[in-house]
Simulated scan of single mutants.
Amino acid sequence: MIVLSWNCRGLGNPKAVPVLRELIKTHTPDIIFLFETLVHAQKLEDKRIKIGYEGCFAVNREGRSGGIGVLWRKSSICQLITFSNNHVDLEILNNDTHRWRLTGFYGYPERHRRKESWRLLKTIAAASNLPWCIVGDFNDLLYTEDKKGLVEHLEWLFRGFRNTINECALQELHLQGYPFTWSRSRGKPNAVEERLDRAFGNSEWMAQFPEAQLINLVAPISDHSPLLLKTVSTGIVTQKRRFRFENKWLKEPDFQDLVQNSWDTGFNQELIPRLKLCSEFLSSWGKQHFAKFKRDINLYKQKLEQLRNFSDPGSMEEHDKIRKKMIDLLVQEEDHWRQRAKSFWLSEEDLNTKFFHSYANARKKKE
């Protein structure tokens, strides 16, 4: 089971869409929790259809804030138990002997409402005796080392959250990677970084999934990092891709020279052999170009991961440049899959979805 948890800070933002698509394509989560979606249920349903997941559930935003969305890849893996404006509680249906509970949680960000968050956590904890895991944006800190910056965090807030976690009999999952999941004004004197996004499990869940991993990912938008929860270690599955002519290549500065050189190489041959030779040149170049495209995206992710450790002005300027380049590449990748699916009727915000992949692969089989 793979779970993605992310405070996306607005799913209606078209820049959030390519980032979410890339996270799905890279990590193939079975369940996705999205917090602060800032959209209504119908908007999430539209995204579900385009992503290709079988089910979704949404808690509508309140005014211009809030909103929770959960999507699941297969309807047979979970069912809804309870929900509120701050949580969605699911029962995971692995099989009859390994049923457990998964909760996506969003804590109140206002200090004067933290006690409401803590009361809700206790209520959810007492609702079932199943093995339980809870993940999300708690908007709370356990220890002083969970914070970096000059803004004071009061002791009663630390103590109240710790007492709540203890009363719920929860154990925190170790976070792999960068220790903070939220940042503000990085690279400036008033910069603040905190570990607001977490995952916990009770003793029964920990015993059932002793190899569970919680990984801090990077995303070029939102001030929160996505979290990836894996109940067991999983390998990376790669797919072999056939060559297709890509319209985006027409924008490459060396494309026309490549076609001209390949055509000139077979100048003493007839038309069909020259076309075949040209296609072979394009096939080789296309594979290298596609590999470079994927490599650049991965390289940008690695650079963003490295730059999170630095807050000097030069590093922050480089961080912003890399973030914008990565978003541009993710948007360009949509052109690739839109052409393969030949679905030009979709709007500009509809990005790299399972629908595109399925449609393109179906066409391959027919050919």
Rank of each mutant, 00 (worst) to 15 (best):
Y108I: 03
N129I: 10
N129K: 12
L102E: 04
D137C: 09
Y106I: 00
I92E: 00
L130F: 13
E110G: 03
I134H: 03
V88P: 03
E116V: 08
K122L: 15
R111N: 10
R101Y: 10
I92G: 07
W118H: 04
K122D: 12
V88H: 08
N94C: 13
W118A: 06
D140P: 04
T97I: 14
V135I: 15
L102N: 02
A127V: 09
C133D: 02
K115A: 11
T123I: 06
E116C: 09
G104A: 08
L120H: 07
W100R: 00
I92H: 06
G104Q: 01
W132R: 08
V135M: 06
Y106D: 06
V88Q: 05
F138W: 13
T97L: 11
L130A: 12
R113N: 08
H87Q: 00
P109G: 07
L130K: 11
L121S: 04
L102A: 00
L93Q: 14
L90S: 10
A126V: 10
E91H: 04
T103N: 00
H112G: 03
N129G: 12
E110H: 00
S117L: 02
L102G: 02
N94D: 15
D137K: 12
D137G: 11
T103F: 06
K115E: 04
A125C: 14
L120D: 00
I134D: 03
R113P: 01
S128R: 10
R119P: 00
A126D: 15
E110S: 06
L121I: 08
R111Y: 01
R111K: 11
R114K: 15
T123S: 15
G104M: 05
P131I: 11
E91G: 03
K122Y: 05
T97C: 08
T123F: 10
V88Y: 09
P109W: 09
D140S: 14
S117C: 06
G104S: 02
R101S: 09
N139K: 12
A127K: 10
W118T: 00
L102C: 13
N139A: 11
K122M: 14
H98P: 00
W132H: 12
A127D: 15
G136A: 01
R113C: 02
L102M: 11
L90R: 09
E91D: 05
N94M: 09
T123G: 12
T123W: 12
H98A: 11
Y108E: 11
N95G: 12
W132A: 11
N95T: 09
E116A: 09
C133A: 09
N139S: 13
R113Y: 14
H87W: 02
A127F: 09
V88T: 11
W118V: 11
G107S: 11
F105C: 01
L93D: 05
H98G: 04
R113D: 03
F138L: 03
